[in-house]
């Protein structure tokens, strides 16, 4: 019985490893492309061999030309804007979700409907009138102008509300009896229980902002305010693309979330039941 379980675990580890590898393969190829000349990347494309995936003559030239082109600045802008969106967005979305899940007030359904409709509207399709408004308020070429559209995320509110609804009401009531106000209940009881959900909401906010392209293009055209996806798109011009630099840019943009995610892994292994509040 125990041996069988162990065998099953080894099988699952193999399967998991294989799947992870398959997902990672295209990125590995991009990594290889970042570490060699464009000519070599395309020459080794066909027929497929090990050299398709391994740089024969490794070089850091692509990274050098990327950095020379001011990519560091763009990465920094992306990081700042995304970090600010995470902090402000989590605050706004988690309080709103708490309000919708726990508080009782007239118009609650309407407010919930507003939050739902807000994530049904294609942002890229309404970005044009919005960017004109932002320009009137002198938010062009500012970090604030880049951050704002990302902070009130209906998906994040929706996710957190669902989680908060699952927190046993008795906890809040007990705290109330102990004299805790709503802010106290939110801060001391709901938030500490919600780390996995907060990580999930953080993912939503992160991906929205880290991937943002059209909005920064419209609202932050100044070279000093360029974000990483726009800087990478610029490497593909009218007369061809610098594939090596594009792949190097992809590697760098993937690196930040990779590190952040590996760090936050431990919050995923933490569970409600583990903290002894359920069951």
């Amino acid at each position: 019985m125990a041996a069988g379980a162990r065998g099953g675990r080894v099988g699952m580890a193999l399967l998991g490893g294989l799947i992870a590898l398959l997902f990672f393969l295209p990125l590995w190829w991009a990594l290889a492309g970042a570490l060699r000349s464009e000519q070599e990347t395309f020459r080794t494309l066909s027929p497929v061999s090990l050299w398709t995936l391994i740089p024969g003559q490794p070089t850091l030239g692509n990274f050098a030309s990327l950095v020379h082109g001011g990519f560091g600045r763009a990465m920094l802008n992306s990081a700042v804007v995304t970090a600010a969106t995470l902090v402000v967005g989590l605050a706004i979305c988690s309080t709103a979700a708490f309000g919708l899940a726990v508080l009782r007030f007239p118009g609650r359904t309407t407010v919930f409907a507003v939050m739902v409709v807000s994530f049904l509207i294609p942002f890229d399709a309404i970005a044009i009138p919005l960017s004109a408004l932002f320009r009137d308020f002198e938010l062009q070429n500012t970090h604030l102008g880049l951050v704002l559209p990302g902070v009130g995320n209906g998906f994040a509110v929706f996710l957190l509300r669902g989680f908060f609804l699952g927190v046993p009401k008795e906890l809040a009531e007990a705290a109330h009896v102990d004299g805790l106000g709503w802010w106290g209940i939110f801060w001391r009881i709901y938030l500490p229980l919600s780390k996995p959900a907060m990580v999930g909401a953080g993912l939503i906010l992160f991906v929205f902002q880290w991937q943002a392209y059209l909005w920064p293009l419209l609202i932050a055209p100044s070279p000093a305010m360029k974000v990483a996806p726009v800087a990478i798109a610029q490497l593909s011009g009218e007369r061809g693309a610098d594939f090596g630099a594009i792949f190097a840019g992809a590697v760098l943009t993937a690196l930040v979330p990779l590190l952040v995610l590996l760090f936050f892994q431990r919050y995923f292994t933490q569970s409600l039941s583990g903290s002894g509040t359920k069951g």
């Binding site: 997902f23 990672f24 996806p229 693309a241 840019g249 992809a250 979330p257 590996l262 995923f268």
Partner: peptide
């Protein structure tokens, strides 16, 4: 690590995914 590798594609700009 496995989870992270499967998650990673969403973290790179979509223009780069498209190029790949």
């Amino acid at each position: 690590l496995m989870r992270t590798l499967v998650f990673l594609p969403v973290a790179i700009p979509q223009s780069v995914s498209a190029v790949i």
